[in-house]
């Protein structure tokens, strides 16, 4: 299956392990991801905070270019997904906004008619490729691994539509298809604090601490996520959270694509698993290496 791939800025930077794991698993899953040519930043939450029309216009530039290919746009980043999707919905719902975005695009020699569907990589992998296919491709199941699936906030919110905003199950079913066990915990769609980690560190750390605690108390070996910013906050700040709250979290935070890669029997190195800030724990390594030898 062929898609127009919109990686987003983080995936080329602090989330490059996400990028590497996607590149590693795509061929095995039969997922053809053709990168959108010369894409620009979606604007994220930050651009929208200072300029609205500009934010929609730059976001729409990507959709306009994508329209030439007439394929679904797929992005692995929750923020890109939310923003591009929101642009699409608002473009359809607000004629005045549509007119202005159209004029702005025209100045750049582009046009958009609103016919592109924006999807998250989780949706594509789980619903297009499907759990059965993924399970059948798995070289070995992750028996004994307890996973806290962390959806974060944006992927399941207003304009999404592929899962429930409060009780999503898409990733739960994936993790179970991979042979691991999902732990049930309350905070699977709670907010990690996002960019507040930069501006209000104390508040964001507290949100992350509660999340880690909830996952830990329910017996998770690791957290699996789908968003670059969630991964960074929970992974890179975990040491600091431990120092601040006198906790002893040692919970690796993986991308869902890395977990798929392990079951496909791909080398952990190719999946960027050596480059997590919180390293794989011994029990996890044992399970993963078992999976590789399978």
């Amino acid at each position: 299956m062929k898609y127009t791939y919109y990686p987003g800025c983080s995936v080329n930077a602090t989330a490059n392990i996400y990028r590497d794991s996607i590149a590693a698993i795509a061929p095995a899953l039969g997922l053809e991801l053709e990168e959108l040519e010369d894409w620009n930043c979606c604007g994220a939450t930050a651009y929208m905070s200072v300029k609205e029309l500009m934010s929609f216009a730059i976001s729409a530039r990507n959709l306009a270019i994508a329209e030439k290919h007439n394929r679904d746009v797929v992005t692995p980043c929750s923020a890109c997904y939310t923003v591009l999707n929101k642009t699409n919905h608002y473009f359809a719902d607000y004629p005045e906004l549509r007119r202005k975005i159209g004029q702005a695009l025209e100045a750049g020699g582009l046009s958009y008619s609103g016919n592109i569907r924006v999807r998250h990589l989780l949706d594509v992998i789980c619903n297009d490729i499907g759990y059965d296919k993924i399970a059948s491709l798995a070289k070995k199941k992750l028996a004994g691994l307890k996973v806290a699936p962390y959806y974060g906030c944006q992927i399941v919110r207003p304009d999404s539509g592929f899962d429930d905003p409060d009780e999503p199950t898409t990733m739960n079913r994936l993790i179970e298809a991979l042979g691991a066990e999902c732990v049930d915990y309350r905070m699977k769609t709670a907010c990690c604090g996002a960019s507040l980690m930069g501006t209000q560190e104390e508040l964001a750390m507290r949100l992350c601490k509660n999340l880690l605690l909830d996952a830990q108390q329910n017996g998770a070996h690791c957290i699996v996520t789908i968003c670059p910013l969630c991964q960074m906050n929970l992974d890179v700040y975990q040491g600091k959270i431990n120092a601040r709250y006198k906790t002893k979290f040692d919970i690796p935070v993986l991308y869902f694509t890395q977990l798929i890669g392990v079951t496909l029997g791909l080398p952990l190195r190719d999946l960027g698993l050596g480059r997590l800030a919180v390293k794989l724990t011994k029990p996890m390594k044992r399970i993963f290496e078992g999976a590789n030898n399978g």
Binding site: I58, A104, A107
Partner: peptide, 19 residues
């Protein structure tokens, strides 16, 4: 690559005025 195009779009937005 095509910063020129992006800038044209941004300039047009400036001209149109924010919503």
């Amino acid at each position: 690559k095509n910063m020129d195009q992006l800038k044209k779009i941004l300039r047009k937005v400036d001209e149109l005025g924010e919503i």
